[in-house]
Nucleic acid binder design. Structure first.
Length: 196
DNA sequence: TACGTGATCACG
DNA sequence: GTGATCACGTAA
């Protein structure tokens, strides 16, 4: 049986390290009696002390769960269309989070294709909006406990290769000025499921 | 490159 | 109330 990541994983202080550690882990959802899972191949770290983060300007209605204790989901609607799934980290009032940007499908591929109205599985979870839809994630999961029964992240014995992580700047946050240049996006090297 | 889409937030 | 903005995806 695979091992769910526990609260001690999420409540560490170094969100950049957590973003790296999440690569190779498996995101699992059980939603509407449908089970899906996929290996995490792309993440981005967000810290409340830099302009790229939703929490930079303080607590608002939307970002409130980012200020919770680590180990809950932060899900919000982006551009009126896409749900984006984040993992809240660090201790209470330290509003750090990791955006999950791409997965390699493992379980429930037929269901993912249904949800996406897609004919093939190809690149169906390569991007944060797409993977949320394919996994059945929406704002109902905002604030949900990541050690519960709807959504969690687990280990399955997958071994990360040495030197297998590529870092780059984060996507789509040009408004953050020089903070947009921070190399806080992490991908699995040469993995074809990474987003474009 | 351009734009749909709707919640959210900072103004009054 | 109102308007600008947005951690995307797809089409062209």
């Amino acid at each position: 049986m695979n091992q769910k990541l526990d609260l001690s994983f999420y409540r560490r202080k170094d969100v950049v390290q957590i973003a790296k550690d999440l690569l190779g882990k498996v995101l699992v959802t059980h939603i509407d009696r449908v089970a899906t899972s996929g290996r995490i191949v792309e993440t981005e770290a967000y810290s409340s002390v830099e302009r790229g983060s939703h929490a930079f300007k303080g607590k608002t209605n939307r970002n409130a769960v980012m200020f919770d204790k680590g180990g809950v989901a932060y899900v919000y609607l982006c551009y009126g269309i896409h749900h984006l799934f984040n993992v809240v980290t660090n201790e209470e009032e330290n509003a750090d989070a990791v955006l999950i940007r791409a997965l390699q499908p493992i379980k429930g591929q037929e269901h993912m294709m249904d949800r996406m109205s897609a004919k093939t599985i190809n690149r169906i979870t390569s991007g944060p909006g797409k993977l949320a839809k394919a996994m059945g994630i929406d704002r109902q999961l905002n604030g949900v406990d990541l050690t519960g029964s709807k959504v969690w992240i687990e280990e399955d014995g997958f071994e990360m290769k040495r030197g297998g992580i590529v870092k780059s700047k984060r996507i789509g946050i040009d408004y953050a000025g020089k903070d947009a240049l921070l190399p806080w996006r992490f991908t699995l090297k040469a993995n074809s499921w990474v987003s474009v």
